[in-house]
Nucleic acid binder design. Structure first.
Length: 883
RNA sequence: GGAAGGUUAGCUCAGCUGGGAGAGCGCUCGCUUGACGUGCGAAAGGUCGCAGGUUCGAUCCCUGUACCUUCCACCA
């Protein structure tokens, strides 16, 4: 590979090339390996025919970072990928496609429809996987699974049968949420409540046998009147005590309904009289069951009024509402209409207002399994990161209701229940039963419904590893280590995986649940198709590279918090990629044609080299700790700061002085080069999980003998590379350099004008420190010569002084010095120091502080005080000299 | 009604177990310095929502409060 690098980093082409290389070399593949410890992440399966959005990008970037980190650390790291069949979403898409071709789902029938659906899946199924690859995802694609593949389907059937036999799955006629557009039942979790402005229609129901007397009810859905089978009042409501037991004439229907008493009614709300529609309201359903009321379903599946609705039959629910209100008005039964805002349940997939309806459906009894899922979080076996997300988890489980799992869809796992054609007996099993156990009949038909998508994704952490078979993978990789997902999906998916895993495998599915927030647009709005404010991650990758996108998503946001997306931030990330690219380019240019050997004794290196080695050593320790705690944002910003500020802005500039004189002093330049390459290499390894492409490209160019940074071992902290003395020497030097730069700017010293720098050290020790890194000043402080001494001797009276903690630096800038300004500058400095001194003294004079604060804090204050006093004295001396 | 989170520099946000407030972007000034102008150097800019409390000491802990966001429940 050529060592020539372009002047700016262009990820195009490079990313694809590297990804192909990784795939070809099989780096992503994990296998059962008893010699290594496993580390497992199961990828939340995206919709098989979906497209990558920012949420996926964030979620998968986090997973990829963790998996790459652990892989480098020597774990057998499995990132188990796959896709979800997404029942409703996919079925709707296929229906739409067929419709555009003039084909009706119901006309072609189940078999033919499924053929179309599979064809659709084959056509678009690979799309999102390829998009994930563009992101750099190092998942084990050899193990890619699909919720409807053979193994997963077997797991689904197995679980269904087990739960049925245990009595945890049952079929029942209960009130469920019905989506009239998707024409299927949906679970409570799939209903979104939103406040809508509507009306309260007050309607009089005439009391039978009491001419002119009415009961006034108030409703937000007048059309449900057609299904009323009672009016309820509170038993303690004095106003209506005499009405209980009386009959009312239900307008528009000719039916008579009773007045009943039930605690459910709130005396204060509305009129205190509630129409009861057991078939179309969950609360009314409960009341109805308590009082044995008739349940009259008045709606067809498409939410038009059915034959029970008399003259309104065939009308859409909202049209019927309008007409009925008109009719009631004409009859003089409409008392009033008042505006009223109330929450309406909508289907989260299509936004349609759901209708509660009574239908025979399959349910999972939740109470017992929920208890187990609660236990593992309460006892700390399974932990949320950040911890606060255990609250919605526990809250949901503690108030859980039975889970409606049947869907009136074809795309999905068909319910393994068979009905005897003769007697209707239900037999649940893997195959069509031969003989009815009840009547001996041999003819059966399978249940038409399919299962909720989440039923199969609930099994994902183990069905993908081969369960229900006892596979080596199950034994080795399960339970998985961490699940990474957004907080919006805890109730849908996380909970269901946990209770399913506990029930089926007896183990938690994962030890940690790492929760992230939503990626919002720059105005803080949710990205959505309808708003058109979504930003396509692929466009970001195309324009700035996957590394820039990944870095953007990982910086500046805390775990579990939402973040806003800004193109400016992507630019900043891109700039960083370019920055390290150029740092590497610089090092490569200097390495050209040289063989660099590791210095025999690192502790004999100059302070600057030992400083940067010591720093990367510390950064390595800190970053590793952050990664272990899932603090990915903190980890990457430490690497960022180290590389940009310390390595590029300081160390490279320091090293240049030696590189310029490579011919004169090959040993010194060799040491600088070795250090440059070593530190950069190590930092690249730390950065690799975050920015896999640019780090790989540089690494392989820098170390042509190496195969890939992906398989390089993760750096480890090394006690022997901790050089406190060097860190202190360099930090003093930096203090002086900053002081000099500041002064030069203030005095408007022209860029090209170099000056001598005199450093009068406060002690022999300090002098030694400054001498040891004197040559660095040449470049850092635009110095023409460095003179470290212990007295002021030989320095002009009017030299500009810069006072630091253990020295005073002087710049002979005679012609530029304005005495008055200089006096002012020093006075200000004096003032500043005086403030510091009084602050320290204040604390130290406080006996409470001295007695109660930790000794280390007190000593630190004492040291500061001494330092500031010394500096103040020096400033004072300068002021005198100037005067 | 219940719960969670937020309130820090002009903007967007970090800030781990309490001990002198940080970043990115923006703004100002100066730089065609031989890796990088996708850059370098120097600055300006914050009583860390408000009020109490605990503490020698609070952006951080506790209580209350205001405003914002979200989730759950209810709404005849």
């Amino acid at each position: 590979m050529s060592r020539e690098l372009a002047k700016t980093y262009d990820p195009k082409g490079i990313e694809e090339r590297l990804y192909e290389k990784w795939m070809k070399n099989g780096y992503f593949h994990a296998k059962v390996n008893p010699d290594k410890k496993p580390f497992t992440i199961v990828m939340p399966p995206p919709n098989v025919t979906g497209q990558l959005h920012m949420g996926h990008a964030l979620d998968n970037t986090m997973q990829d970072i963790l998996i790459r980190f652990k892989r480098m650390q020597g774990y057998e790291a499995l990132w188990q990928p796959g896709t979800d069949h997404a029942a409703i979403a996919t079925e709707v898409k296929v229906i739409e496609k067929l419709r555009s071709e003039g084909i009706d789902k119901n006309e072609i029938g189940r078999e033919a429809f499924l053929k179309h659906a599979w064809a659709w899946k084959e056509e678009y199924g690979g799309r999102i996987i390829n998009q994930l690859k563009k992101l750099g995802a190092s998942a084990d694609w050899d193990r890619e699974r699909f919720t409807m593949d053979e193994g997963c389907s077997r797991a689904v059937n197995d679980v269904f049968i087990k739960l049925y036999n245990k009595g945890y799955i049952y079929k029942g006629s209960r009130i469920i949420n019905w989506c009239p557009v998707c024409q299927t039942s949906i679970s409570d979790a799939e209903v979104e409540h939103e406040d809508q402005d509507g009306f309260f229609w007050h309607i009089n129901y005439p009391i039978v046998g009491e001419e002119g007397r009415f009961v006034e009810i108030a409703t937000t859905r007048p059309e449900t009147l057609l299904g009323d089978t009672a009016v309820a009042v509170n038993p303690k409501d004095e106003r209506y005590k005499d009405l209980v037991g009386k009959m009312l004439e239900l307008p528009l229907t000719g039916r008579q309904i009773p007045v009943i008493a039930d605690e459910y009614v709130d005396k204060e709300f509305g009129t205190g009289c509630v129409k009861i529609t057991p078939a179309h309201d969950p609360n009314d359903f409960e009341v109805g069951r308590r009082h044995n009321l008739e349940e009259i379903n008045i709606l067809n599946d498409d939410a038009t009024i059915n034959e029970k609705g008399g003259k309104y039959a065939g009308m859409d629910r909202y049209e019927a509402r309008k007409v009925m209100v008109e009719d009631l008005k004409e009859m003089g039964l409409l008392v009033k209409v008042v505006p009223h805002s109330h929450s309406v349940g909508t289907h989260d997939r299509c936004g349609t207002t759901v209708e509660p309806m009574i239908k025979p459906q399959w349910f999972v009894r939740m109470h017992e399994m929920a208890q187990e899922a609660i236990k593992v979080v309460k006892n700390g076996e399974m932990k949320f990161v950040p911890e606060r997300f255990d609250k919605p988890y526990l809250n949901w489980l503690e108030n859980i209701r039975d889970w409606c799992i049947s869907r009136q869809l074809w795309w999905g796992h068909r319910i393994p229940a068979y009905y005897c054609d003769e007697c209707g007996e239900i037999v649940v099993g893997k195959e069509t039963p031969a003989v009815c156990p009840k009547c001996g009949c041999t003819h059966f038909h399978q249940d038409e419904d399919s299962l909720d998508t989440w039923f199969s994704s609930a099994l994902w952490p183990f069905s993908t590893l081969g369960w229900p078979d006892d596979t080596p993978e199950m034994n080795y990789f399960y339970p998985t280590d961490v699940l990474v997902t957004g907080y919006d999906i805890i109730t849908f998916w996380v909970i269901r995986m946990v209770f399913s895993a506990l029930e089926q495998t007896g183990k938690i599915p994962f030890h940690h649940v790492l929760i992230h927030g939503l990626v919002r647009d720059s105005l803080g709005r949710k990205m959505s198709k309808s708003l058109g404010n979504g930003i396509d991650p692929l466009e970001v990758i195309d324009r700035y590279g996957a590394d820039a996108l990944r870095l953007t998503l990982m910086t500046g946001n805390a775990p579990g918090n939402d973040m806003r997306f800004y193109w400016e931030r992507v630019e900043a990330s891109r700039n960083f990629a370019n920055k390290i690219w150029n740092a590497s380019r610089f090092i490569l240019m200097n390495l050209e044609g040289k063989e660099i050997e590791k210095p025999a004794d690192l502790s004999a290196l100059c302070p600057e080299d030992r400083w940067i080695l010591s720093r990367i050593n510390t950064v390595t320790r800190e970053v590793t700790e952050n990664m272990d705690k899932y603090e990915l944002g903190i980890a990457v910003s430490k690497i960022y700061d180290f590389l940009w500020d310390e390595f590029c802005d300081w160390y490279i500039e320091i090293a240049k002085v030696r590189l310029w004189k490579a011919d004169e002093d090959p040993k010194a330049s060799g040491e600088a080069l070795w250090t440059l390459r070593t530190v950069l290499t190590q930092a690249l390894k730390l950065l690799h999980p975050f920015m896999p492409f640019v780090t790989e490209e540089i690494y392989c160019t820098l170390l042509p003998e190496e195969e890939s940074i992906m398989i390089a071992p993760w750096p480890e902290y090394d006690e022997a590379l901790c050089f406190a003395d060097a860190e202190s020497a360099v930090s003093c030097m930096q203090e002086v350099v900053r002081g000099i730069r500041n002064t030069r700017t203030q005095m408007q010293v022209p860029q090209g004008r170099k000056t001598h720098v005199y450093i009068v050290a406060g002690s022999a020790e300090a002098a030694e420190q400054y001498r040891s890194c004197a040559r660095s000043f040449v470049n850092l402080a635009s110095a023409s010569g460095i003179y470290v001494q212990e007295t002021r001797e030989g320095i002009g009276e009017d030299a500009v002084s810069i006072v630091v903690s253990n020295a005073v630096a002087f710049l002979p800038l005679e012609d530029l010095v304005d005495k008055a300004k200089e006096l002012e500058r020093l006075s200000k400095e004096k003032e500043r120091l005086a403030k510091e001194i009084s602050r320290c003294e204040g604390m130290l004079n406080n006996p409470n502080f001295v007695n109660k604060a930790p000794a280390a804090k007190v000593d630190a204050e004492k040291e500061k005080l001494a330092k500031y006093k010394e500096m103040a004295e020096k400033v004072e001396t300068q002021l005198k000299n100037l005067a």
